[in-house]
Simulated scan of single mutants.
Amino acid sequence: MRHRAGIVTDEMLTIPKWRFAVIGMLEALGVVTGMYSAAMLPGPAIPILNQTFLLWQLGFSALLLGRRYSWNKIAGCLFVAAGVVTAIASGSESGQMLSGVGLLWPIMMVVSSAFQAGATIIKESVFIDAVAHLKGKLLDIFVVNSFGSAFQAFFVLLFLPVLSNLKGIPFHELPSYIKSGAGCFFNVGASSGCDGSPLLPLLYIVNNIAFNISILNLVKISSAVVSSLAVVLSVPTTIYILSLPLPFLPEGVTLSSYFLFGSVILVLGLILYNVPQHNNIKHNSDSDFM
């Protein structure tokens, strides 16, 4: 449809696909490692460990894109990560959070963040290189999203036999599990635990697609690190919303002072990241602001 409208040109579709394959593979590996480690980790530890995503992006951006960051941007990112950790860990005994959990699972969650961070940096490089390939035109985000998602789905399906064996599910029983999952999704002959289907899953899919497109557009017009800061800002916001008495989540919770303190640190980090530096190096620097 966008191709017929002239938004997506033939030149955009001729961009080499190997980087989209790498993006899809990294995202699939991120999903697989994140899913398995999340199943073994306590809930509050998962978003905390996921904040290494931003630090991975800083490193990959400097290594792969040759970007150099001023002290305020590095400090701002560290403040943001610290603020989210403080907010999410509110009321929890952080010293005992990972007690009884093997070292493998936290490491695997950190590695999954590295895979996802690498994928976003490669997406940014695709947008940068496409400007020269398209003679100054900007690459349409749906080209990157479509090819990247297609390769991601391919690699996830490729990993499916391995995943089923790791979960103790014989490969020949996968069709029955898929059938049960489809029944739960459409709420047809499903067992308990499928309340709200299919409305809630569809709402999740629509919101997830819209969120991913928004973040990808932010990568296109700014940088992967800036998009990560926007995502990080959404974490405590999401926790606050989920603390309210909502449908299917009727029991609201009271947020502690740690949450408010962490949110303040996070906002200070965003402000620090966006403080203009007159002595910044103009070339190979991340001068985009949120």
Rank of each mutant, 00 (worst) to 15 (best):
G262M: 09
N145D: 07
Y69R: 05
N208M: 14
S197A: 14
F186R: 08
I271D: 14
S197Y: 09
Y69D: 13
I169L: 13
G34W: 00
A210N: 01
F248S: 01
V101D: 06
Y36L: 15
A119Q: 10
L134Y: 03
L200G: 04
Y240V: 13
S222P: 01
S125P: 06
G34L: 10
P245N: 08
I107W: 10
F60A: 06
V235R: 11
Y36W: 09
Y273N: 08
V143L: 03
S125G: 15
I178S: 06
S146P: 00
C194F: 13
S180D: 06
S257E: 07
M108L: 09
S234I: 05
T238V: 14
V143P: 00
K17C: 01
S112L: 03
S61W: 12
L41E: 10
A182S: 07
L266I: 11
S223P: 04
Y258C: 10
G262W: 06
N284R: 11
K135L: 09
T86Q: 09
D288H: 15
G43H: 12
V232L: 15
F171D: 04
A28G: 02
V162T: 13
M1P: 01
I48M: 13
L163C: 15
H133E: 06
M1R: 03
A21R: 00
F151K: 00
S146V: 11
P250D: 13
H172N: 14
L255N: 05
F115T: 04
G76Q: 04
A182Y: 07
A38T: 13
A39P: 03
L98Y: 00
E173F: 00
S99V: 10
Y177P: 05
R67L: 13
N72K: 08
P198L: 01
K137A: 06
V126D: 14
Y36F: 14
P198T: 00
S146M: 10
L272Y: 02
F142E: 11
V225K: 07
S257C: 11
S99H: 02
G100L: 08
I205H: 09
Q152H: 04
F248D: 03
C77M: 07
R2I: 03
G193K: 13
I74N: 02
L216C: 02
M25A: 02
I271P: 07
S214G: 09
F185E: 06
S146W: 11
